[in-house]
Simulated scan of single mutants.
Amino acid sequence: MSSGRLLDDTALAASAVVANNTMNRERGLAGPNSYAKELGFDPYEFLAARQGAQAWLDLCCGSGKALIYAAGRIAAERPEAAVTMVGIDLVDHFMGGPRPPGLELIAASVADWSPRRSFDLITCVHGLHYVGDKLRVLERAASWLVPDGLLVADFDAESVRDVRGRSSARRVASAVRRAGWEYDTRRKRVSCLGPCTLNFEAAYLGADDAAGPNYTGQPAVASYYEWSRQ
């Protein structure tokens, strides 16, 4: 099946691959190492172009650097704007200093955390590489969008395996597209507009943190599922 025994969420959270990953720790909002570069758009500009109160949820936000900068910029340039920003990360290694208004950084597992509101923008920059049940996170996050909200996440379908350890990339990509999502196989990026139902019809078995590097060149986690239809 895998190179070793599969890990549950508790064991995975203690894994050196997950706890010590640096993929998103210092990524800023704009510039060479930024959300704008990875996502293909600037989250701040996306929110600024919309009307009324806005909310941005960043899953696996790392140090929260991008959120802190965006919240600070809004406070300085548009103090009248009602913008909420929420960052979730497994490890409480958030940047220190004063927090701009409207910003909340929470140490929690994205597999278990649930919001109390809907969001105009949901992002996950390279975070799913280190999550066990990646498909469930996508299923849940899709339900947290406002009607015209946008979800964008880095997602490597090749990291999803079946019970025999074979790639389930084609099956996953087909399910995503049938649900109305877009999956960019070259950029390894998944996105959707508005809340939608996404059901992969798969039972999560566990994760392998010894799967080795993925397309980023960094060690990542492979997720194993038993599909209801073989």
Rank of each mutant, 00 (worst) to 15 (best):
Y215S: 02
G96M: 04
G127T: 04
I106Q: 02
A76N: 10
D156R: 04
W113H: 06
L193K: 14
D120E: 13
R229F: 08
S143K: 15
G31P: 10
R73Q: 15
W227V: 03
G149P: 05
F119W: 12
Y44H: 09
S191H: 13
V110R: 02
K65T: 14
V160W: 01
V172Y: 03
R25C: 01
R78N: 09
A70T: 08
G64Q: 07
E226D: 14
A53H: 09
V131C: 04
V125I: 12
I74F: 14
A48H: 07
F46R: 02
K188W: 13
G180I: 13
Q51C: 03
A75Y: 09
C61W: 13
P100C: 04
E226A: 14
P98A: 09
R25I: 13
A202F: 09
A49D: 15
R171D: 07
A75I: 11
V110T: 08
L67Q: 06
V176Y: 09
R117W: 05
Y35K: 03
L105H: 03
G31E: 01
Y225N: 01
E80T: 08
F200N: 02
S159W: 01
A169V: 03
N214R: 05
A66E: 14
Q54H: 00
T123W: 06
R50D: 06
L47G: 01
E26K: 12
S63Q: 09
P147Y: 11
D154A: 12
S3P: 00
E45V: 12
R166E: 15
A55W: 10
A48D: 12
E201Q: 14
C61I: 13
S109R: 12
P147R: 08
E77P: 04
R25Y: 11
S114C: 13
S159L: 15
T216S: 11
A142M: 12
H129R: 08
F200G: 00
N214I: 10
L135V: 07
D154R: 13
A179G: 00
D42M: 11
G217P: 03
Y215Q: 07
G87C: 12
R164L: 11
G52E: 10
G4Y: 10
S63V: 11
L138T: 01
L193T: 13
M23C: 15
L59D: 02
A141Q: 05
G4T: 13
D133H: 08
E104Y: 00
D154V: 09
F155G: 01
P213L: 08
D120W: 11
G31S: 04
L193P: 00
Q218G: 02
D89M: 02
Q218M: 12
E226I: 02
A82G: 01
D148E: 15
E104M: 07
G180D: 13
E80G: 01
V221T: 10
L39W: 08
Y183E: 09
E77Q: 15
L67Y: 15
P195G: 10
R5E: 12
L90V: 12
A55T: 05
A142I: 01
T123L: 11
A142W: 11
V91L: 12
Y224N: 00
V86S: 00
D120A: 07
F46E: 05
S34L: 07
Y224C: 01
E104W: 05
A11T: 06
A179R: 05
L7H: 11
